[in-house]
Design a protein around this nucleic acid. Structure first.
Lengths: 202, 202
DNA sequence: CCATTATTGGAACTGGAGACCCGTTACTGT
DNA sequence: ACAGTAACGGGTCTCCAGTTCCAATAATGG
């Protein structure tokens, strides 16, 4: 009746931690250099200098590995800058997203995660958790802007943040190209204009 | 030195057309009922009442099959309604996208296509062609709005249309849920507000 | 330091996706 | 109507992703 959450949970130190680190490292390398389609667990194991059995036992599938990779990245919280204006803050957010999607490792990871999330529920959950965290971190910017009177009362902060990211991800997925500075700037300005107009009032 | 574009191109009529139709039908069924992860070529062949060899020969991979499925869908052009105002037209566009993504078959297909496009170049091209066509069809709405003075001169019509779709796709991919009426309405209003504010001026 | 046992990893095994062969079917131009 | 051949499809084979087994290794608590 007791659910043990698989290997690596009882003795997570020493070798186990090293194995996890080198497997995630190798998986990230493959993803950045060769892409999602080439991500093969046996291959990752070989590159990581780790037994194939271990990788299958702990991650099971490509989707599972990718989900763990995302969880790893979610750890590093990027410090949020506060500029004093809604446009300035959203611009900073758009630029963060742009840099994330433009980075070879992180950009490739996000494409992989989104692809995997369309068919794997665990990856989809990891993805949702990641966005919830990011949005929770940035929502206060919008709340402040509302307090300052830059947007109408009742504006939904989360929706505004999502509105900034949306066109950047959309471009990456449908055009296959990471966003440039101009696109990021446009996204920030569009979200600001819409928020000012009261579109995101609940 | 001559590139023949594979089987089905020299004698596309009769049986060949029937085979293609029933394979695409079966593939759509599997996609809608069981999802992308369960889309197996041998399985599709069996359901379509067609030889496994034929499916492998003509489509080769799951991504290739999905790309063809999208091309098939792109054929049916949806008549565009003209409402006389920018907001009205963008609302109509947002609603079209909402209904597309909400439809069991088409929604599942889009998730599959976007997933496949992240790693398969042919699928990515098919996707880009589809969006180029859709955007070309709707761009005139925005051009008219500019003529009417609803948006500043120099506004990029394609960017406005993309701005409508972006949040709807973003929600589907990151939250895993097709957009509802309220979300579509918000997308149309946000794009309108941003366009009016001159965000999409080139 | 030692006993316990969680975790690893080599090796052998298996199932099924996908390639191949070749006889059959039926589309197409004349 | 008919010849020529494009396209189909059943049967067979290959190869490798993923599983299983168990002995070796090392993390952890006392």
């Amino acid at each position: 009746m007791d659910e043990d959450a698989g290997p690596g949970t009882v003795r997570p130190g020493g070798r186990t931690a090293r194995v996890r680190a080198s497997v995630l490292q190798a998986a990230g390398d493959v993803l950045a250099e060769r892409g999602f389609a080439q991500l093969d667990l046996a291959d990752v194991a070989r590159l990581a200098g780790v037994g194939k059995t271990t990788v299958y036992r702990r991650w099971g599938t490509v989707a599972g590995l990718v989900a763990d990779l995302l969880a790893e990245m979610a750890e590093e919280s990027v410090p949020r800058t506060e500029t004093g204006s809604l446009l300035g803050d959203l611009r900073a957010n758009a630029d963060l997203v742009r840099r994330t999607l433009g980075d070879p490792r992180q950009g490739a990871l996000f494409q992989a995660v989104i692809a995997a999330a369309t068919y794997d529920e665990r990856t989809a959950q990891a993805l949702r958790r990641f966005y919830d965290a990011r949005i929770a971190e940035w929502a206060p910017c919008v709340a402040r802007a509302v307090d300052r009177g830059e947007a109408p009362a009742g504006t939904d902060p989360a929706e505004v943040i999502r509105a900034v990211s949306a066109p950047l991800y959309y471009g990456l997925l449908t055009a296959g190209k990471p966003p440039d500075e101009a696109t990021a700037e446009r996204a920030a300005r569009a979200a600001t204009a819409a928020a000012r107009a009261g579109v995101f009032v609940r």
